[in-house]
Design a protein around this nucleic acid. Structure first.
Lengths: 203, 203
DNA sequence: GACTCCGTCACCCGAAAGACTGAAGTCTGA
DNA sequence: TCAGACTTCAGTCTTTCGGGTGACGGAGTC
């Protein structure tokens, strides 16, 4: 009986992850919690084989919850959920006992693979996975132009249209766009917009 | 002395709107508030010629704030800021005394034009502008495939990559993408991602 | 049975995007 | 004063995107 406990304060994300994890072969039961405190309270009762926990939550965050959980139950397997907004937190969580992490922008397949790995692995060294943490510690600092270009992208404007709005040439907009992509780690404007929302540059 | 009071709980959006409004000819002073309550408190003191207020805010939302403001000060000119997520709320706000609304995905020019119009107009009938509210009251219903394609887009995947993830041909992905754009009213994948976040399909 | 919606795939086409350079002006801060 | 960031623009190149259109099978509906 392999059970997984998913913890995220956002109901939508929680259910999405539940579905993804539920599809992993070998996982019979997936339960959900809405806070780190709830995980600490329920872990001794449910004894899940794996805890998937969001890094950022109200109350004690995922990092502190992971630390306390592993301190109280050294056999607990914790995998952090992150959306790249807090790589330092992930690093601390991993060093505090989490077995790995999954980026929330990962595909369903990647989630499944990571969960399966975490379940299968005898405690793999945290260092191995900690390397996957993004090197950029702080939220990227966007210049005003980059912010404006990002904003235009989110409104479905082409580079030429953004240029006309800002009284710039299309080439200049493309230059700002390229640097924007580098800073955000985006492959294209669609991902840039997604990361813009997650970093709070857009809303 | 024409002054405009901008109210939005998000500092970034607030500043962006401030800048846009500040560029409108005839506007000498733009002040900013962070909540509906703050607007109600400051309006009698500052007596701005126009209040730009976000529909959705913590505490009393823009609708209720607009209603109370106009009830207390019938000469108050309120224009709602919306991002299309709550057309009913806009309609109620307009019927409750708001003079119009501006979509947040509007261009700077559109913002300027609407502000100038709201300032210049003797009280135009609310009905005239209320028609601009999007006819689609409910969030668009996305099929599972469209949701999956949207998700892939938000992760920066190309259509071909999404196709490989979902075991589909690139052409099929493009078909789903095209229908997705139609449903969301998006011009391209970047705007589709933005609308996906605003409708809650992505997070 | 007719109709509609979804999912699948294919073709063509022009427009746009994004990567790669190089360069020059402004402005700030060490 | 000088380094460095920001901003501006330009060129070339390949890839991708998005629109238009058509098609076929299946599921559900009227």
């Amino acid at each position: 009986m392999t059970t997984v406990l998913v913890c995220d304060d956002a109901p939508l994300a929680r259910e999405a992850i539940r579905r993804a994890v539920g599809a992993v072969p070998g996982v019979e039961r997936v339960t959900a919690a809405g806070s780190g405190e709830e995980v600490l309270a329920r872990f001794p009762i449910e004894r899940p084989d794996l805890v998937l926990m969001d890094v950022r939550m109200p109350g004690i965050g995922g990092v502190e919850a992971s630390r306390r959980l592993v301190a109280a139950h050294p056999d607990a397997a914790v995998v952090m959920l992150t959306m790249g907004e807090d790589p330092d937190g992930v690093a601390r969580a991993v060093s505090a006992g989490a077995r790995g992490y999954i980026a929330k922008d990962a595909s369903r397949e990647e989630v499944a693979a990571t969960v399966a790995l975490a379940l299968a692995a005898g405690r793999e060294g945290p260092a191995a996975r900690a390397q996957r943490v993004r090197p950029t510690g702080a939220p990227p600092a966007l210049t005003e132009r980059e912010q404006q270009v990002l904003d235009g992208m989110s409104r479905g404007k082409s580079n030429a249209e953004i240029g006309r709005e800002l009284y710039l040439s299309e080439d200049t907009v493309k230059t700002h766009a390229r640097r924007l992509f580098r800073k955000l780690g985006a492959a294209d404007r669609a991902q840039a917009v997604a990361l813009g929302f997650r970093w709070g540059f857009l809303r």
